[in-house]
Amino acid sequence: MLPTLTTLQQRKPYLYSLDWLCPQCNSAPEDLNHLWTCPYILPELNPCSTHRSEVVKFRDSCLSSFLSLKPLDSNFQVAFSALDCWNYETPSSSCLWLTRGLLPAHLTNFLKQYFPLSVIYKTISPLLNDFQIELYGEIWLCRNVLFHAWEESQGISAASKLRGPSSNPPSTAISSHIHNSSLASVSQDSWISWISSSIIR
């Protein structure tokens, strides 16, 4: 499981206060679903629009691959594109399953009307893997750069993560100013500069 803030809050509540919200937007708990849809926007680092474009790219790649296997009428294309797993607007729960690397049953059930299950998996597995790699590179790695900077601003160091609860002050002792700190309150120019210098190093 990716160590989102909610996961870290469960694992190390003595370091990560349970009332902290997403470090980027400070408007919702940072869980796996929020990770892909966080509204905090930095130029070129918008997870919401990146997620949407990657879902569309994945859907279109799947459609092209299945259409290349045998001739299918336009009804297939329309029905395939209308499946709930491609609904990235909200996003739907089945879209979030895809994001996590899980194939929704309605997707495979739909495809089984046209292809054997072995062909479905053989076709979709490499595309799903590519989708996961793109999301990891475009969203998760960028989030980690920002998250580590946020951790430092909270006084959470690599050494404090290695120590147990007895070595750390309880999170309730941390000032309320730090509790409410988020990347959304920092000017975008300073973060862009910081990210650029971090990448160049």
Rank of each mutant, 00 (worst) to 15 (best):
S49H: 11
T50I: 15
T50D: 04
T50W: 01
T50Y: 01
H51K: 06
S53V: 03
S53D: 15
S53M: 11
E54M: 02
E54K: 13
V56K: 09
V56D: 03
V56M: 12
V56G: 01
R59V: 06
D60E: 14
D60N: 15
D60C: 06
C62F: 05
L63G: 03
S64F: 08
S64A: 12
F66Q: 00
F66H: 00
F66W: 00
L67Y: 01
L67G: 03
S68H: 01
K70I: 01
K70N: 00
P71E: 10
S74Y: 06
N75K: 13
N75V: 07
N75I: 04
Q77C: 13
V78H: 14
V78I: 14
A79C: 05
S81P: 01
A82I: 04
L83R: 06
C85P: 04
E89Y: 11
T90K: 15
S92R: 06
S92F: 01
S93R: 11
S94M: 02
S94Y: 01
C95A: 09
L96D: 02
L96Q: 14
L98W: 04
T99D: 09
T99M: 06
L102M: 07
L102P: 00
L102N: 05
P104W: 05
H106E: 14
H106Q: 08
H106S: 04
H106Y: 00
H106F: 00
L107A: 08
L107P: 04
T108C: 00
T108P: 00
T108K: 02
N109K: 10
K112F: 02
Y114A: 08
F115W: 02
F115S: 06
F115P: 02
L117R: 07
V119C: 09
V119D: 13
V119M: 05
I120K: 00
Y121N: 10
T123K: 02
T123D: 03
T123Q: 05
I124K: 04
I124Y: 07
I124H: 05
N129G: 01
N129Q: 12
N129P: 00
I133Y: 08
E134F: 01
E134Q: 13
Y136A: 05
G137Q: 11
G137I: 01
L141P: 03
L141M: 13
R143C: 06
N144P: 02
L146A: 13
F147I: 07
F147P: 09
H148K: 15
A149L: 14
A149T: 07
E151T: 07
S153H: 08
S153Q: 10
Q154Y: 05
G155L: 10
S157E: 00
A158E: 13
A158V: 15
A159D: 14
A159E: 15
S160N: 07
S160V: 12
L162D: 09
L162I: 06
L162T: 11
R163E: 11
P165W: 01
S166E: 10
S166I: 12
S167K: 13
T172D: 08
T172V: 09
S175Q: 08
S175N: 11
S176P: 02
I178D: 04
I178Q: 08
H179F: 14
S181R: 14
S181E: 09
S181T: 13
S182A: 15
L183E: 04
A184R: 11
A184G: 13
S185F: 08
V186K: 10
S187C: 14
Q188R: 11
Q188G: 07
D189R: 10
S190Y: 11
W191T: 03
I192C: 05
